[in-house]
Nucleic acid binder design. Sequence first.
DNA 1: GCAGCGGATTGGAACGTTGCAACTAGTGAC
DNA 2: GTCACTAGTTGCAACGTTCCAATCCGCTGC
Lengths: 331, 331
Amino acid sequence: MRQVRMQDVADAAGVSTSTVSNYLHRPGRLKPDTAERIRQAIEAFDYQPHSGAAELRGARRGLIGVVIPDVTNYFYASIVRGVTDVALERGLSVVLCDSGDDPAREIALFDQLSERRALGAVVVPLSADHERLQRLIRRGIQVVVADRASATSTGCSVGVDDVRGGRIAVEHLVAGGARDIAVINGAWSIKQCADRFQGAVGAAGKDASVRVRQVEVSAMTVEQGAAAATSLLADLPDALFCTNDFLAAGAVQALLAAGIEVPGQVRVVGYGDLELASLAQVPLTTISQPVAELGRLALELLVADVNHGAEHQHAVSILEPALVVRESAPS
Amino acid sequence: MRQVRMQDVADAAGVSTSTVSNYLHRPGRLKPDTAERIRQAIEAFDYQPHSGAAELRGARRGLIGVVIPDVTNYFYASIVRGVTDVALERGLSVVLCDSGDDPAREIALFDQLSERRALGAVVVPLSADHERLQRLIRRGIQVVVADRASATSTGCSVGVDDVRGGRIAVEHLVAGGARDIAVINGAWSIKQCADRFQGAVGAAGKDASVRVRQVEVSAMTVEQGAAAATSLLADLPDALFCTNDFLAAGAVQALLAAGIEVPGQVRVVGYGDLELASLAQVPLTTISQPVAELGRLALELLVADVNHGAEHQHAVSILEPALVVRESAPS
DNA sequence: GCAGCGGATTGGAACGTTGCAACTAGTGAC
DNA sequence: GTCACTAGTTGCAACGTTCCAATCCGCTGC
């Protein structure tokens, strides 16, 4: 069964391919009955325009990429979801590039995108190494960086205000009476972690009677959270701010196992508002991020960028996180 | 900055475009020093072949679609992950189509895939309505159905053996001494739910002293799980089999809130082995599904299908679920 | 009856590849 | 010196669109 092409439709309707093309893109120019004949022919053949061929000739509908470290991670999946929503509205197709936390794969995927002449890409880069991104941009693929907002990049970027997230988390703890707060945090080299801690310190800084100390973990997992909490048993703080929900869930597990009451003796705030936050042993008070919104916004900026090329001003958009109060830190 | 095309490379290397094409696809045919000159020219221009143009001409590398109801759902995201892994190995690009549980969107996405002349698609269909799938196939897009395995479809399909999953869940409960088992289940019209229940009944059927009853819920959520468990308080079973982990988590919450011990008084088995299963108030014994494997396999079947066209025999592959024992039903 | 107009339609040259058939040189056999 | 052969290379015609310029046709106004 051969491809149905525009020529077939044109023949059936007794017009030229140009007229069919006009029907598709500038319907106003056609006489109503010509249009109707073409409509019927398209229907009869179940004709679908070949967007690849159209792009070859220069049409601007197109492909955009989403490059993320891991689709099975709820956070990234939500970004993807936001992107796909907008893409569908705009008639764009989304190529999903899951780098699996592997820089070599990330490069291979970038190459795939440029081979396919993607219009642009929403990227959550693996490392701060902007060299790789520059390469994409040089090849004519616009890039919007998500969740790694930075003014140094040569494109738009969108992110969530992690300093603010850390601040409202700790403000909530202080407002509830906490005076000795331990922050269980990932590596300082991760910008989010550094920012959240900075916010935490800032919130406490207003009040000299509040002490903030940090426990650094090597990976932001349940196990590491439990280990970190266990290390605090000898000198128990009255509140814990964990910079993600896995750490918080692990910490709560460890505390309960050691006979410490949560929130009775130690109050805990997590970060991210993952599904598990509401379902944990003690439902977690946490910081939620407008993450689907992040994806939507990223693609909208990308589209603006692609459409307005030179005169487009690169923007850095920062969205606001919000406190979600549950049992682990009720007030 | 104009596109770099094969012609530019050819000119720089002092050969024809055909030779460059040969360099790219049949490197053996070139004299080593010609190859080297072309290599350098490609390097100098940072030339990337235009895969769209290649496909137009008939090359077989290509685009494949993954159509799922919701990327933010861990189960579907894992399928996507499996698909992207294989796709990268094969040089295919993955177009992600998130239908958001909306049939109209599903149709729009199918159209997008056929406009782009995708080679094939891995689809987790919204409904059993194979009419829509047929339409894709008629347009020359091979389809592999995932997680909705059925022999009636006109393509390969892959799935997990839900009857078996239900069976091993209940066998585990019976082996642990349960005699009165309630199954909290989604609608019968969902094949998975019906199958899991059938397996549950089968497992119990061997032993006349075991009673199995069903509580049907309208949505497979935490809330509904809690409600269903609450409705059982008056006539408490000694074990609960919930056909997904959300239901199980909700049920456990409700039981604990009512002062019932888990697993002391009621043992609970969930289904799916979501992240939350290990982190719930009582870590859940559950059935895990080889879900990334499902995605990998789906794409492998799809590739086989696309490559061998007519002589390819459509296969129905059923993978095996496995029991994961945790505290909610320790033995 | 004819020039001029404007709306509807068409012709044809791209777009960047690919793969076949054809060509060129060079080698060796006779 | 001719022929067959091979390895390496090239010319060319697609592939399915788009868009500009050109053409066609039916009217109006004089």
